[in-house]
Amino acid sequence: MDLSAINWLLLLASLMVASTPILLAAIGELVVEKAGVLNLGVEGMMITGAISGFAIAVETQSPLLGFVAAAIGGAVLALLFGFLTQVLLSNQVATGLALTLFGLGLSSLLGQSYIGIKPPLTGMIDIPFLADLPILGTIFFRHDLMVYISLLIVVAVWFLLKYTRIGLILRAVGENHDAAHALGYKVVRIRLMAIAFGGACAGLGGAYLSLIRVPQWTEGMTAGAGWIALAIVVFASWKPGRVILGAYLFGGVTVLQLNLQAAGLAIPVEYLSMSPYLITILVLVIMSADRSRTALNAPACLGRSFHASS
């Protein structure tokens, strides 16, 4: 193996690109879970976003419209989940799984005529002055717009949850829906909005994969990214700042193993490819072993159905 074949500067720069899809999906799911809803359909929403964004971007030749379509696609699918779990009061775990299975089928159905097509290029944004910095400029300041938007979304979520009334209401609904209901907040409506936001973010994350990271459409291209996003929310103990840390950690592992594959490490490719999943499991174990912390931070009503009369 030739470690010097790895360009560490480019590796660090591609880290941000590799992390962005997971970051987007995870921050959306964090808001959903903060509202007390467990949506296991992230994978399904991501892949639906990936194909709807890809299709619209190819048809209109505008990546921007593609991302908008992906957000809408993800949100529509999420609202299907919302309608079932919030209005028809179905089991959240089962419905989330259904969303993933349905999303995978729907996306490969929609994507049939888009296999092997190149999407329109998304422009890079070199941030003036900062991009010219040695080393740091390449790593942080020469990316496409979505990388920065994803970080902005995380900051906005952090601010909203921590410092605003909306955030307080959202958290109240997630911690104790009966009390929030008694105070006059519309539990179901608030949860539906959170679910739609989560779906939109997952959709954006999926479109980032198909439009920028890969960039191509292949069936099942999310390959578990949605599930890793779910794990990252646990890893982050439901804190937005730590979602960045988690997503970049996993992005780092992914990029590193890809580079090791390219550098011809003496380990078979398949074993390197399974490393991100194994490390996700490992991190989950470490986080959950610390009982006091996870128990304190998980929203108290996570995964429980709300029915006003009960």
Binding site: F102, G103, G105, L106, S108, L109
Partner: peptide, 8 residues
């Protein structure tokens, strides 16, 4: 894929 969507 239509069958997969159908089952979902």
């Amino acid at each position: 894929a239509a069958i997969q969507a159908f089952q979902g």
